[in-house]
Structure formats: C-alpha cells, structure tokens
C-alpha cells in the first residue's frame, strides 16, 4: 500500500511540475509574440525542478519496484502506481483503474464545459487549458489512490 501511495503522490507532483513548466513556457512564448522581438528568454526554474524531481523519482522508483525481476526497459514502460504482486492486488488495481477511468468520464465533460467560459478569463489565466488537462490527470490519480487504499484495507 505504501508503494501505491508514494507512487501516486509522486505522479501528482510530476503532473504539477509539468503544468508549471508548460505554463511558464507558454508565458515566455506569449511575451515573444507580444513584443515582436526575436529574443527568447526562458525561465529555467520549472525545467530544473522537473528534471531534478524526475531523476530522483526514477532512481527511487526503480530501486523500490515491487517486481525486482523487471529490467529497467520493462519497468520504464509501466505505470509505477500499479502494484500487482498477487491475485488480490491485481483485482484491487483493476478496481482502482476502473474508478479512475470513470473519473475521466466525469471530469473531462465538466472541463470541456468550463472551456466555454475561457474567453472571459483568458487574460487572467492564459495557461488554464494546461492546468485543466493536468487536473484531469491529478483527479484520476487521486481517485485511483483512494480506491486502491479503500479496497486494500477492506
């Protein structure tokens, strides 16, 4: 259970850092377009945070992978939140994945509807589409984690 909690929280941190990086990049690009200059200045802080976290997370996750027989190549193409050590965990993971899928069916239409009002607050929050997409991933990961914990401790 500890593995699923740590990996789910790590994934959420990664999504937040990605959203921060892309929104920062969007802001930098917008500045270039508005000023009509060919000088590009990038804020490196979000990139450094993301890369730094990603390296630490990759090393930790690979060392603590539930199935120690997996090579790096096999491990790297799997979702690290999944823990399927035995048949019960496989069932719990399937249940949690289903719940996360259902959460997409609820959050995505709501966010699609919220885009209708985007022109009203576009200037105040230009990176809204990036954060909206990140929030769907964050919500589904939270749903996955809570469903997994509930089923595991049942």
């Amino acid at each position: 259970m500890k593995h699923v909690v740590i990996q789910s929280i790590s994934s959420i941190i990664l999504y937040v850092l990605m959203a921060f990086l892309f929104s920062s990049f969007l802001s930098d690009v917008s500045t270039v377009i508005e000023t009509d200059r060919f000088e590009i200045e990038f804020n490196l802080l979000p990139l450094l945070l993301l890369v730094g976290f990603f390296i630490i997370w990759t090393i930790y996750s690979f060392k603590t992978r539930p199935n120690q027989n997996l090579s790096f190549g096999q491990w790297s193409v799997r979702m690290t939140e999944f823990s399927e050590v035995d048949e019960r965990e496989q069932i719990i993971t399937a249940k949690a994945t289903k719940a996360a899928y259902v959460s997409f069916g609820i959050t995505v239409p709501l966010l699609m509807a919220s885009f209708m009002f985007y022109p009203l607050f576009e200037n105040a929050l230009p990176a809204y589409p990036i954060y909206a997409l990140a929030s769907t991933l964050i919500i589904s990961t939270l749903v996955y984690m809570t469903t997994w914990i509930r089923a595991y401790t049942h």
Binding site: V85, D86, E87, R88, E89, Y152, H154
Partner: peptide
C-alpha cells in the same frame, strides 16, 4: 505465493480467493 495481507483478508472473509 501471495502477500500476508491477502491471507489476512482471506481469513477475515473479506476476500474470495481464486480457484487456483
């Protein structure tokens, strides 16, 4: 070949094992 938690759940009756 399962986790201890699976045996705990099985004994509590909260988990129905596979036939295998």
């Amino acid at each position: 070949g399962v986790t201890r938690q699976t045996i705990i759940s099985l004994e509590k009756g909260s988990y129905t094992p596979s036939l295998l």
